[in-house]
């Protein structure tokens, strides 16, 4: 590994590698290594290695779209808010800011990073990506990753409200993992829930095997879990060609105290679901798509040909949305 010469007496600090294209962050927590790469070129967290395996297939992105439900189609929501489908697919990373131990540093691209060494460390590191949406008008989303020496990443996502933008179906962060998870465990409500359909969910710790897709006749938004305090994704498969024996690892996403999130953990992105007429047309499951959401639109139910979702369950795109959660590498199970 590239950091074998890291000072052993600085295990309480994060080891930082000021690369030309990425910012490397390394450390260990109770003997367990973690390695993060924050890419300047790709505009996000390109790598998260914990439990001995890679967890990122592509950098996480803000998500703005859900595969249209039958009700979304019926009441014209797709026609009013379809702009967010494109915004969900394509986004520009406009700015990256880095804070070391609370201090903003000059952006460390070459040659600025020539002043660093192979012995850099910090007790806290924050990297903030600012994205610009392709909506008209455009707005911004700031995604900040703040790490402490134990490797826990505090993620904060801030959507800047903008007048003139249509209502959002969802706002969250989408994590694309390289392989299908074995399953996930979470503390929250049972079953598939939405803001306007969660009274029947019972609170508790629930374990889900595999990555079930709710088999609605026409594939659509599914698998949301409201009011979640944490979710742990379990994997045993990797794409690493060196892997000989299967090893199990899990990654935990923990809500801020008193601010539960919603999540869905599926083998498909919204656009993959959106493009199928039938379940059997969905691609073969290959990856894990975890969306940790700060705002979710209700599904509605009055009818499927015009009635809107009740006003309390809309997401006003003119208002800011700020939420956060922690990504916590866990030990092998």
């Amino acid at each position: 590994m590239e950091n074998t010469d890291r000072k052993s007496d600085r295990q309480d600090l994060l080891q930082i590698v000021y690369g030309d294209v990425t910012l490397g962050v390394h450390g260990n927590c109770e003997g367990e290594e973690f390695h993060y790469l924050f890419s300047y070129a790709a505009g996000g967290m390109e790598s998260l290695v914990s439990g001995g395996m890679e967890w990122m297939y592509r950098p996480p992105r803000p998500c703005f779209w859900r595969a249209a439900t039958d009700n979304d189609r019926g009441n014209g929501f797709t026609l009013k808010s379809g702009m967010w489908l494109a915004a969900d697919q394509f986004i520009r990373c406009a700015k990256i800011d880095i804070f070391v131990d609370g201090e903003k540093i000059p952006f460390p691209s070459a040659p600025e990073n020539n002043r660093y060494t192979d012995q850099e460390a910090a007790s806290e590191l924050e990297i903030v990506y600012t994205y610009e949406t392709i909506t008209v008008p455009s707005t911004q989303v700031e995604v900040s990753y703040k790490m402490n020496s134990h490797g826990a990443i505090q993620v904060k996502a801030h959507y800047y409200g903008k007048e003139g933008l249509p209502e959002l179906p969802v706002f969250g962060m989408r994590f694309l993992m390289p392989t299908c998870a074995d399953g996930f465990v979470y503390e929250g409500l049972s079953g598939e829930t939405y803001p306007d359909r969660k009274a029947g969910g019972s609170h508790g710790v629930h374990e889900v095997q595999g990555l079930p897709v709710t088999p609605y006749l026409v594939p659509q938004e599914c698998g949301m879990h409201m009011d979640t305090s944490w979710v742990e994704v379990r994997r045993s498969r990797t794409l690493d060609n060196r892997s000989v024996s299967r090893q199990k690892a899990s990654l935990r996403f923990q809500a801020e105290e008193d601010s539960p999130f919603a999540f869905s953990c599926l083998p498909y992105t919204a656009s993959e679901l959106e493009n199928a007429f039938h379940q059997e047309e969905l691609p073969l499951p290959r990856r894990t798509v975890l969306c940790i959401c700060g705002a979710v639109r209700g599904v509605g139910g009055i009818d499927s040909w015009g009635a809107d979702v009740e006003p309390a369950y809309h997401i006003d795109a003119g208002q800011d949305i700020v939420y956060g959660f922690h990504v916590i590498p866990c030990r092998d199970r």
Binding site: D70, Y194, L217, D303, V309
Partner: peptide, 13 residues
């Protein structure tokens, strides 16, 4: 009432 086409049945309350 509560037209449960696809992912629906919101707002029963």
């Amino acid at each position: 009432y509560m037209h449960d086409m696809g992912n629906s049945l919101g707002g029963m309350d």
